[in-house]
């Protein structure tokens, strides 16, 4: 039984050789020599036909048995060697992951715009819409339509930028507030009106708390049954949404030519009471200018300084920082 002896010999020797294969190449070599084309196994299998019947079965069984055993050992070994090879390849690709990452370029929106958007969104969520008006405005809309008399100090050249444009007596100027849009919007729309007006405004002023231009958000609500209670509640609600749910507010009497009664809202923020915005019930004279009947409708209006909101909430003490283009400032506006 030479064939059976050779099989047993193979069964005894081959596993050690397979286990000793140190790389995929030598394993392939061993595979060829044990179960492959040049192996005793193939030789014996080819010779099966020439064996006597009684031996053929026995040898055939043994051939399959050894082939299966060695095949599985080789597969196992290959898997181990493949894994090791991949691990080594990966090890070669190792990098220092603590090196700075490759950040996609990303800029920042200006804080003024972020705050403006946040305020707008609060009011939009309450059913208001957005209107915007021209920065170069007529004296009529900036002052006259808002019941600001010709003698009012805010009309002085010391306070307002006038333009060499348009015709006297109703010349043009850089709007001193976003309020002109009250009149413009009401002229074009019938009540009810619920709008906010964000925008750039101008005053002839420059120091650590004033820049010649800054931003305001105007609000206007006109309907058949709006009262001072609505004004208080709505603006207090705004303050809570903007500064936090526990924000306290108080309203104190003030004066604006285009509202009556007029008030200032103060909010307790940053550990102190801060003047946050001016507001009031729309003055009947303003309704008169736009053709609304002050006996039929009532309304409230408010205006707040965007820079002020930004400064209060983010601890900015000099307004000029908001107009400094230094990247180290801009990158903080996240």
């Amino acid at each position: 039984m030479e064939a059976l002896d050779r099989l047993s010999q193979l069964e005894a020797d081959a596993p050690a050789r397979i286990a000793a294969a140190s790389d995929l190449e030598s394993l392939a070599q061993i595979e060829a020599e044990t179960v492959g084309k040049r192996s005793p196994l193939l030789e014996i299998r080819r010779g099966l036909g020439s064996l006597p019947d009684d031996q053929r079965r026995e040898v055939g069984r043994r051939v399959n048995e050894v082939a299966q055993l060695l095949g599985s050992l080789i597969a196992q070994r290959r898997s181990i060697l493949e894994t090791a090879a991949m691990e080594e390849a990966l090890r070669a690709e190792e990098v220092d992951v603590t090196l700075p990452g490759r950040r996609p370029p990303r800029g920042t929106r200006h804080l003024i715009d972020s705050i403006q958007q946040e305020v707008v969104d609060i009011f939009v969520s309450m059913g208001y819409t957005v209107a915007t008006g021209p920065e170069a405005e007529t004296e009529f809309y900036n002052f006259t339509a808002l019941n600001i008399p010709y003698t009012h100090p805010s009309r002085l050249e010391s306070d307002t930028f006038y333009l060499d444009y348009g015709e006297v007596p109703e010349g043009t100027l850089l709007r001193t507030h976003t309020s002109p849009m009250q009149a413009r919007y009401m002229e074009l729309n019938r009540p009810p009106v619920y709008i906010v007006v964000p925008g750039r405004v101008f005053r002839r002023d420059s120091d650590s708390t004033h820049t010649p231009s800054f931003h305001q958000i105007e609000g206007l609500a006109v309907d058949t049954d709006i009262t001072f209670a609505d004004l208080k509640g709505t603006l207090a609600h705004f303050a809570r949404l903007f500064f936090g749910p526990d924000t306290k507010t108080k309203f104190i009497p003030h004066y604006f030519p285009f509202t009556e009664p007029s008030a200032e809202m103060h909010a307790y923020a940053d550990g102190r009471w801060l003047e946050l915005l001016g507001c009031g019930m729309v003055d009947p004279a303003v309704f008169g200018h736009v053709g609304y009947d002050p006996n039929q409708v009532t309304g409230f209006a408010f205006g707040m300084g965007v820079e002020r909101l930004a400064m209060v909430r983010h601890g900015i003490t000099d307004i000029r920082a908001l107009y400094d283009p230094d990247l180290r400032i801009l990158r903080q506006f996240r």
Partner: peptide, 16 residues
């Protein structure tokens, strides 16, 4: 002014 109640007033339309 403190003796006037607060009432939140929502608009009738709105949107961006």
């Amino acid at each position: 002014f403190d003796n006037i109640p607060d009432r939140v007033r929502t608009g009738t339309g709105g949107g961006l």
